[in-house]
Structures are given as C-alpha cells and as structure tokens.
C-alpha cells in the first residue's frame, strides 16, 4: 500500500547500499529530485539499471555511489557524451565501474519480462551486432516450434524502481501521461517502487481520464512523494518543458572533476527537494 512520505523519509526507508536500482525515465519524467536525495544520503555500491542513463546517473557515478551500471545508451541526449561516466570507464575515477551493455530493444524486453515475472526476455535481436560477443548475458534460445534462433537476456528485476509521474491521488494511485517510456514495466518489475509526482489530487477517478490511461494502482507502489518540479532538468508533460540549456551546460560542468564537485556541492549536497519548484517556475509557461 502506498504511503505518502517526504522524499527524505521515502529514500531512507527503501534504498540501501548494495541494491539494484532502476531510476527510469525516457528523456521525459526523469526523477532527478529522488536521485539527488540518494546522493545526499550517501548510498554506496549501487547497481544502476536504466535504458538511457543521462545526467542523473552521470552525477551518481561521479560521486562514487555506483559499482555497476546496466544500460543501452550512455549519452547526454542532444548534447554529446557523459563525461563523468566516461571518466569512470576510461580512467577508473572516482572508482572503476563494471558495466553491462544492451540495445534499447533488449532492455525494453528485459523490463517487460521482469514485469511479467519471467526469468528471461526472448526477442529477435543482436543479429550481426558485436555486443553479443562482449556481453556474456546475451545468449540464444531456439524456438521449439519454428527452430528460429532468438536472442535471450536475463529479465530486469530491480530491488527498487523510482519513477516520476504527473499525478497521484490520496489513495496513492498514479497517473503517467505523454512519453510513458518504460515507467510501467519498471515499476511492475521491481520488488519495491517509489514514485515522485507533481501533485496529489483527491481521486483520479474524478478527472475524467480515458479508460486506457496509464494508471498504476496504489498497491503496486510503496511510497508516493510530492515534489513539484522533481524531474528538472528533464520535463513533465503538461507542467513544464525540458530545460535544454541545462543539458547543454552539463557538458562543460562535467568536463572537469573540480568543477563537477563544486557544482554538486552547491546544487545537490547543500540543497533540498524544495528547490525543484523554483527551478521549473520559468519553464511552466511554455508547457
């Protein structure tokens, strides 16, 4: 049953050292505020899963929280490379990280398999792709009916999934709209799910939603946290637009180890979840 908690309490209650976390969002709805709280609480030795690790995972890697990453695209979308993650992979700074790399199709299938309670995902993939040579978790399985050889990878079963969404209601049911990405599968694949939302309404049923709207029932979620602006600098459809300038600026901030630390000190370690509402105030009018 979903409990409405503060961000600090929700992360403290559910996120532990050594866990496998999926903090998902496909460009849209990336739970930055929750990730920053994990950094402030100093968790260590995390395995991070995400299709498109962007600035948030770059920050967590650069702060030394991460021992392994599972991903399918490790870039700053539209701006270039992830410099803290590159520093960890290429130079072992601040610590070496292990990584398991897939394609988007593979990760999407692996989350779906996790949500479906299956041990592995089966799909037609990786043909002629060299990832299959370097990643021992990419294997093949033969269809018992047609004898077609298909790719198989382990399903994704995170200890904790964290997503951001538009709305929850008092009971804890959650509404996700727009580019819904892998949010639903990531929640249903996890042992525990935390959702940060822009706002809490009385009852989602009263909103006149489409009967096919993407709604996660309250009993699939452990904790709901209201954090207006909590996806900044990514965006929340219907609330505020993507802060593209911030993504571009990150390329410079993350290029230098000292500059990165100064930025993290000022904007994350010395901040609280309350700053996010201000960060998006000027981005709301355009949404």
């Amino acid at each position: 049953m979903a409990q409405h908690l503060t961000l600090e309490a929700a992360i403290a209650a559910h996120v532990r050292d050594g866990q496998t976390l999926a903090i998902e969002g496909f460009t849209h709805l990336i739970p930055f505020a929750a990730g920053h709280e994990i950094i402030r609480q100093g968790r260590r030795d995390l395995t991070l899963v995400r299709m498109t690790p962007d600035l948030l995972y770059d920050q967590m890697v650069g702060m030394g929280l991460v021992s392994k990453m599972i991903f399918s695209y490790v870039g700053n979308p539209g701006a270039g490379l992830l410099r803290r993650t590159r520093d960890a992979i290429e130079n072992g700074w601040p610590q070496p990280i292990a990584y398991e790399e897939h394609s988007h199709a593979a990760m999407a299938n692996a989350y779906e398999a996790g949500a479906a309670g299956l041990p592995c995902a089966i799909f037609r993939g990786y043909r002629g792709a060299e990832l299959a040579r370097v990643n021992p978790n990419i294997r093949t399985i033969t269809c018992p009916f047609t004898h077609e050889e298909l790719a198989a990878i382990p399903s994704v079963r995170p200890d904790v999934t964290i997503i951001h969404a538009q709305k929850a209601d008092r009971q804890g049911n959650v509404l996700v709209e727009g580019i819904i990405g892998i949010q639903k599968e990531a929640v249903l694949a996890a042992k525990t799910a935390i959702v940060t939302v822009e706002e809490v309404v009385d009852d989602l049923r009263a909103l006149g939603l489409s009967p096919n709207a993407c709604v996660l029932p309250h009993w699939t979620i452990a904790a709901i946290v209201t954090v207006p602006g909590g996806a900044h600098p990514s965006y929340t459809s219907g609330y505020y637009v993507r802060d593209n300038a911030e993504y571009i600026a990150w390329d410079d901030i993350s290029a230098d180890r000292d500059r990165f630390h100064e930025w993290m000190e000022e904007n994350v370690l010395a901040a609280t979840a309350d700053v996010f509402a201000d960060r998006v105030s000027a981005l709301r009018s355009a949404a």
Partner: peptide, 12 residues
C-alpha cells in the same frame, strides 16, 4: 580510448 554513447535502438 573513447567511450561513445552506444547503440540505443540502432542494432535492431
């Protein structure tokens, strides 16, 4: 030598 972003959707 240089770690690039990776395949994303491209392999499939």
């Amino acid at each position: 030598k240089v770690r690039l972003p990776g395949g994303g959707g491209a392999p499939e």
